[in-house]
Write a protein that binds this DNA or RNA. Structure first.
Length: 109
DNA sequence: CCATTGACGTAAA
DNA sequence: CTTTACGCCAATG
């Protein structure tokens, strides 16, 4: 067990791993939970480093529920497939019922 | 070492 | 309401 550098990235990884099944969260929500409401970009960048880690980055979307990071996954619709596989409806790279599946760490955690 | 970019978001004009 | 600018911090060139 090794704390992933425990920096901003490490914190992001932790929170991202705690996202429940069938739920999604936004970069800003994570950043806000970490106390960096304006560091949402760092969260996204951290996801970039999450490749190969046990981090469900596919459950993290932008504030609009748009799968902005889907381009970083293997296929072109892998991210959408994963979300739909968990019960999250995704149409046109956008999460449906985003308000329902949205998981806010600052509130639920 | 300096400049540019990046899976975002909020504030201001 | 729409568009523009900035902040955040790390990685990469």
């Amino acid at each position: 067990m090794k704390p992933e550098t425990l920096s901003f990235f490490g914190k992001v990884y932790k929170v991202t791993r705690q996202i429940p099944y069938g739920r999604v969260t936004s970069y800003g929500a994570i950043a806000n939970y970490l106390g960096a409401s304006r560091s949402a970009r760092m969260v996204g960048y951290a996801m970039n480093g999450s490749a190969g880690k046990n981090v469900p980055a596919h459950r993290v979307v932008n504030r609009k529920g748009l799968l902005t990071g889907k381009h970083h996954f293997e296929g072109t619709n892998l991210m959408q497939q994963l979300l739909e596989s968990e019960g999250v409806a995704v149409v046109d790279n956008q999460v449906q019922d985003f308000n329902k599946v949205f998981w806010d760490p600052a509130k639920e955690l």
